[in-house]
Design a protein around this nucleic acid. Structure first.
Length: 878
RNA sequence: GGGCUCGUAGCUCAGCUGGUUAGAGCGUUACGUUGACAUCGUAAAGGUCGCCCGUUCGAGUCGGGCCGAGCCCACCA
C-alpha cells in the first residue's frame, strides 16, 4: 500500500494535484494514447462557451456529461478526442464591453474609435477566457488542451475567410436588402433576440388614404403610410375579394401613392377593418409581402428616425411629429373613421429603450434554397434536412428531430452581416456601387473595406471542422490529418435552446465545406433551473457559481448530482441537498475502499481487475454475479445515452450490495482479499467516468498507473464463465435465492442482529399481522426457499415459509371480501398472461427464431402461471 | 395563433418497447456508535401515478378530452 487514506475524503486536498497529473500525463491528447492504428475514433467537440462571462452551473452539466462520455470511451480503447474552445460571441461580447467602458468612463465605443475599442475587447476576452478555462479544469474535464481553439483566433479567421470566399464563388453568398431592427439612438442594428417588447397603450387610427379609396385601413403609425404601396386583405375575406388585384392612385395627405390590393393569408380579418396598409420599407412582414407581390419599396424614415427628403412638409420631422401632422390632415378631410386605444407590444432597444425602427439595409446573405453543385444540385436546406429525415444524424431525445425539421423547412436566407465591430471581418470592398469580394483589397484607390462583421454563428457553424485543421487538411476533396481521423465527430452534446441557432448551421456548413455530416448524434441536455424552477440569468442574479459549490462539496459530488436523476432534453432544478447526498456517497465509496485496502495483503493488491477470481462461497458468487450484471447495465446505458440508469445501478450495487451485505459477510468469512480487491478495482474503473477525482485518488493509493487510462475489463470472457456456472447450478433464479439465504444465515449466525421481524419469524414466536406478513414477503421475496400461501379458514391465512432450513408458519386474519377481490383480479391477470404466452409459444416462428434459453424461460413461466391459476381457482371455490 | 415539455411519496426526481407487489435520494418517526464510514447503520410511516373517458385479459406507461405549471416559435398592422 502506497499511502494511508484519511478517515474522510477531502476533495480539496486531491483535486488540483490529480488534474495536474492527468494533464501532465499527456493522455488528454489522443496522439499520446498507446493504441493500435485501427483503434476507432471517438470525438466530442466542446460547444465553445461565450467569453462574455464566467461559466454557470449549466456549463458544469455540459462538462460533466461530455467528460462522462469521453472518459468511458478512453477507458474502452477508443482514440478519444475532446476538443476545447471558446466563442467570441460577437454581439454579446461587444455589448458587455460597451457597458463596462460606459460604466467606468462614461465613454461610448464611438468616443474610443474602432481600433481602441477592439483593444479593450481583447483585454476583456483575455481575462474572461482565463477564468473560463480555469473553471473548466476544476470540473475535471479531460479536454485536449493542446488543440484549444477560439472562434476568432488566427486559424479560425483564416478558415472563416476561406469559407466566405468559397461560398461566394459558388453563388451561395450574396448581397441583398433586408429589413433590420435599427436603433436610431445607438445607430446600430439589433438581432431579433436583442429586441425587447414593451406593452403599451397605443392609438389605433382607422381611416382611408383619401375619399376616393374604397377600403379603410387601421394603423398605430400613420406616418409610415407615406410609404405604402399596397393594401393587403385576407384571401378568404368576402368583403374585399372583389378588390384583389386592382390598383389605385390616391393622394394621401398631399402625397401621391400607388396602392395595389393584394391577398395575404397572414392578414387577420377580425383586426381593425381586416385590411392592412403595406409599408414594405418599415415592417418586416410587409417587406416579405412586397417580395412576394413584387411591390415598390418606398423609404420614409431615415437612420436618424426622421422623415426623409421628398415628402414635402413632412420631410425633416421626427416620426412622432409627422404622425401628429398627418392625423390632423386626416381629421380636416374627415377621413378618420375611428380612433381607439389598444394594447400592443412596442419593440425597443434592449440597451437604450428607444423604440426601434425597422429599416431596409444592404446585408450579406447565405442562400439556403439555391442548388449547390457540390451537393449534387441539392440546396443547403435540402441537404441539411435530409440528414435528419434519413436519421443519418440522430437526435436525442428524438422529439428534437421534428423541431429541427420544422424549423429547417421554414428557413429563409440567412443574414450573416452584423453592424458591429467585434467579429470576423467580411472580405469585401466597395467603391461607389462597385463591390469586390476577395482576400485583398483590389488595385486602385478609393476602395473601402466592408465595416461590418459576420454573425457569430457563421464561425461557430464551422466548429466541427475549423478546429480540426480545415482548410489545410482538406486538399483536392481529401481529408488528411486530424480532419481525416476525427471528422465527422461522434456526438454533439449541447443545450436544446441552441438547436436551431447552432446545430442547423453546423449541418449546412459541414455539408458545404466537406460534403459530409458534422456529427452522428446530437444529444441535447436540459436547462439547469434555480431552486424555484426559474431560469438562471445574470439579470435576476439567481445564477450559481460552480466554483462555490465545488469548493463546498467537491467536483465529483457536483458532477454526480448533475448526472444522476436527470434525463436528456428535460430541465433539472438545482438542489443543494442532492449534491450533499452525492458527497455522502462519495465518502462512502472512499470508506469502502479504505476498509478493503486496510485488510489487503501485498499479493491481494496485485489482483488483476480483468481476471475473475475464484469464488468459494455462495456470497462470493452472488456479489460477483451482481458486479457483472451491473457492468452490463452500465454498458447498455452508455450505448443508449441513458447515463442516469447506469449510475443508479452502480450506486445501488456499491452501497446496498457491496457495502451493506458483502463487506459484512467478508468480516465473518475472512480471506476475501483477492475478491475484494478485484471488486474494488472494477468499481473504481466503472465509477471513474462519473467521479474521476475520488476514484483516481483511491486508485493512486495502491497503483502506480493512472486510472484514467485503465481499460475496462473485457466483458465477454466473464459472461461465458457465468453462463457455465448457472448451468451447473440450475437456473439463475434459484442460485440467487440460495445465495441470499446464505447471506442471511451468515448474518444471524454471526450475531449480526436480525431485525425484530426476522427474529420473530425465525423463532416462530408469534403470528404477525397480515400487513406485516405482506411486508415480510416483500422483503424476503428473493430470500425464501419456498413460500406457500394457503387459506386455512375463510378468515385466516396461513403462510408457510422455509427460510434457512427452518419451516415457519404464520397465521393471520384476512378479510374474505378483499381476499376474494384480490384473487379475482389475479385470476384475470393470470389468464391474460397465459393466453399471451401460449400464443407466443404456439407461434412456430417465435419458437424457431428466438434463442433457446428464452423459449425455455417462457415455457417455464407458463407452467408457473398455470399452477398458480389452478391454486387460485381452488381458493375461489371455497 | 402554432408547437413542445412536465404533473408519480412532504420535497427533488427515476420509471426503456403496457405485465404479477410503482422506485431512489432528501426529509419525517423509532432505535442504534468501543475500529471502514454519524458525510454511518437497522427499521418504519408515507402514493386512488393531476382529473375523466377509451383501447386491452391487464394502463404510471398507449389514444382522446379537460385542468394546472412551464418553455419555444410566429404575430401584435
Amino acid at each position: 500500500m502506497k499511502s494511508e487514506l484519511e478517515k474522510i475524503y477531502n476533495p480539496e486536498i486531491f483535486e488540483d494535484d490529480i488534474y495536474q497529473k492527468w494533464e501532465n500525463s499527456g493522455f488528454f491528447n489522443p496522439d499520446n494514447l498507446d493504441l493500435p492504428d485501427n483503434a476507432p475514433a471517438y470525438t466530442v467537440i466542446l460547444p465553445p462557451p461565450n467569453i462574455t462571462a464566467k461559466l454557470h452551473l449549466g456549463h458544469s452539466a455540459m462538462l460533466a456529461i461530455e467528460d462522462l462520455m469521453v472518459r468511458y470511451r478512453r477507458q474502452n480503447g477508443y482514440r478519444t478526442l475532446w476538443l476545447p474552445g471558446t466563442d467570441h460571441a460577437a454581439i454579446a461580447t461587444q455589448n458587455m464591453v460597451e457597458k463596462k467602458i460606459f460604466a467606468e468612463s462614461g465613454k461610448t465605443r464611438h468616443d474610443l474609435g474602432r481600433e481602441q475599442f477592439l483593444v479593450e475587447v481583447q483585454k476583456f476576452v483575455a481575462e474572461t477566457q482565463a477564468t473560463i478555462l480555469g473553471q473548466t479544469r476544476k470540473m475535471g474535464a479531460s479536454l485536449d488542451w493542446s488543440r484549444l481553439a477560439f472562434t476568432l483566433d488566427d486559424e479560425r479567421q483564416f478558415a472563416v475567410k476561406r469559407m466566405f470566399l468559397d461560398m461566394h464563388r459558388e453563388g451561395i453568398i450574396y448581397r441583398g436588402e433586408r429589413i433590420v431592427n435599427w436603433c436610431p439612438r445607438c445607430h446600430s442594428t439589433l438581432a431579433d433576440d436583442e429586441v425587447e417588447y414593451k406593452e403599451q397603450t397605443a392609438k389605433l387610427y382607422t381611416f382611408k388614404y383619401s375619399s376616393d379609396f374604397p377600403i379603410a385601413i387601421s394603423t398605430t403609425r400613420p406616418e409610415t403610410k407615406l410609404g405604402d404601396t399596397a393594401v393587403a386583405v385576407n384571401p378568404k375575406d368576402e368583403r374585399y375579394k372583389k378588390f384583389i388585384g386592382k390598383e389605385y392612385k390616391v393622394n394621401f395627405c398631399g402625397q401621391d401613392l400607388k396602392i395595389k390590393i393584394i391577398a395575404d393569408r397572414n392578414v387577420e380579418m377580425e383586426f381593425g377593418t381586416g385590411a392592412l396598409g403595406v409599408t414594405p420599407a418599415h415592417s418586416a412582414i410587409d417587406w416579405h409581402m412586397a417580395e412576394e407581390n413584387d411591390l415598390a419599396i418606398i423609404k420614409v424614415i431615415d437612420e436618424n428616425g426622421l422623415i426623409k427628403e421628398g415628402f414635402g412638409e413632412y420631410s425633416g420631422l421626427t416620426a412622432i411629429a409627422a404622425r401628429q401632422v398627418i392625423v390632423e390632415h386626416l381629421g380636416q378631410q374627415k377621413l378618420i373613421l375611428k380612433e381607439e386605444e389598444i394594447i400592443n407590444n412596442l419593440s425597443c432597444c434592449y440597451r437604450c429603450d428607444s423604440p426601434i425602427e425597422p429599416l431596409p439595409s444592404k446585408q450579406w446573405f447565405i442562400a439556403v434554397d439555391t442548388p449547390v453543385a457540390r451537393l449534387k444540385g441539392k440546396s443547403l436546406k435540402e441537404a441539411a434536412l435530409e440528414l435528419a429525415k434519413t436519421e443519418e444524424v440522430k437526435f436525442l431525445p428524438e422529439r428534437f428531430n421534428k423541431r429541427y425539421c420544422d424549423w429547417m423547412e421554414n428557413l429563409h436566407d440567412w443574414c450573416i452581416s452584423r453592424q458591429i465591430w467585434f467579429g470576423h471581418s467580411i472580405p469585401a470592398w466597395y467603391r461607389g456601387d462597385e463591390v469586390f469580394v476577395g482576400e485583398e483589397s483590389p488595385a486602385g484607390d478609393d476602395w473601402i473595406k466592408d465595416e461590418d462583421t459576420l454573425d457569430t454563428w457563421f464561425s461557430s457553424g464551422m466548429w466541427t471542422f475549423s478546429t480540426l485543421g480545415w482548410p489545410e487538411n482538406f486538399k483536392d476533396g481529401q481529408k488528411t490529418g486530424d480532419l481525416a481521423r476525427f471528422h465527422p465527430i461522434q456526438v454533439l452534446e449541447t443545450g436544446y435552446e441552441i438547436l436551431t441557432l447552432w446545430v442547423s448551421r453546423m449541418m449546412m456548413m459541414s455539408l458545404f465545406a466537406l460534403g459530409e455530416k458534422p456529427f452522428s448524434h446530437v444529444y441535447l441536455h436540459g436547462t439547469i433551473l434555480d431552486e424555484k424552477g426559474k431560469k438562471m440569468s445574470k439579470s435576476k442574479g439567481n445564477g450559481i457559481d460552480p466554483l462555490e459549490v465545488i469548493s463546498k462539496y467537491g467536483a465529483d459530488a457536483v458532477r454526480l448530482s448533475l448526472l444522476m436523476g436527470s434525463t436528456p432534453g428535460n430541465d433539472a432544478r438545482y438542489n443543494e441537498e442532492k449534491i450533499e447526498a452525492k458527497r455522502n456517497f462519495i465518502n462512502k465509496l472512499w470508506n469502502i475502499s479504505r476498509f478493503i485496502l486496510s485488510d489487503a495483503s501485498k499479493d491481494d493488491l496485485n489482483t488483476s481487475a480483468s481476471v475473475l477470481p475464484v469464488a468459494t462461497t455462495l456470497a462470493d458468487r452472488w456479489i460477483l454475479s451482481e458486479l457483472l450484471s451491473v457492468r452490463k447495465i452500465l454498458d447498455a446505458s452508455f450505448a443508449d445515452f441513458n447515463y442516469s440508469i447506469g449510475a443508479e445501478a452502480l450506486y445501488d450495487f456499491t452501497w446496498n450490495k457491496l457495502a451493506d451485505w458483502y463487506l459484512e459477510i467478508a468480516k465473518v468469512e475472512k480471506n476475501k482479499g483477492v475478491i475484494l480487491i478485484y471488486i474494488l478495482k472494477n468499481v473504481l474503473i466503472m465509477w471513474h467516468p462519473f467521479i474521476p477525482y475520488v476514484t483516481e485518488a483511491i486508485w493512486s493509493s495502491f497503483n502506480d498507473n493512472l486510472l484514467m487510462i485503465e481499460q475496462w475489463p473485457k466483458w465477454k470472457d466473464k459472461l461465458n464463465f457465468w453462463v457455465s456456472v448457472s448451468e451447473k447450478d440450475g437456473n439463475n433464479f434459484s442460485f440467487i435465492q440460495e445465495t441470499i439465504i446464505a447471506i442471511r444465515n451468515a448474518r444471524s449466525v454471526n450475531k449480526i442482529e436480525p431485525t425484530r421481524k426476522v427474529q420473530a419469524l425465525v423463532s416462530g414466536e408469534r403470528a404477525i399481522s397480515l400487513k406485516e406478513q405482506e411486508a415480510l414477503i416483500k422483503s424476503l421475496r428473493t430470500g425464501v426457499e419456498s413460500l406457500e400461501i394457503t387459506t386455512a379458514t375463510p378468515t385466516e391465512k396461513a403462510i408457510k415459509i422455509s427460510l434457512a432450513g427452518t419451516e415457519i408458519y404464520l397465521l393471520g386474519a384476512i378479510d374474505p371480501e378483499k381476499e376474494r377481490e384480490r384473487l379475482v383480479k389475479e385470476k384475470s391477470n393470470l389468464e391474460g398472461l397465459i393466453s399471451n404466452l401460449s400464443q407466443r409459444l404456439d407461434n412456430k416462428e417465435f419458437v424457431s427464431r428466438a434463442p433457446a434459453n428464452i423459449v425455455a424461460t417462457e415455457t417455464e413461466k407458463l407452467d408457473r402461471y398455470k399452477t398458480e391459476l389452478a391454486n387460485i381457482n381452488e381458493a375461489l371455490k371455497l
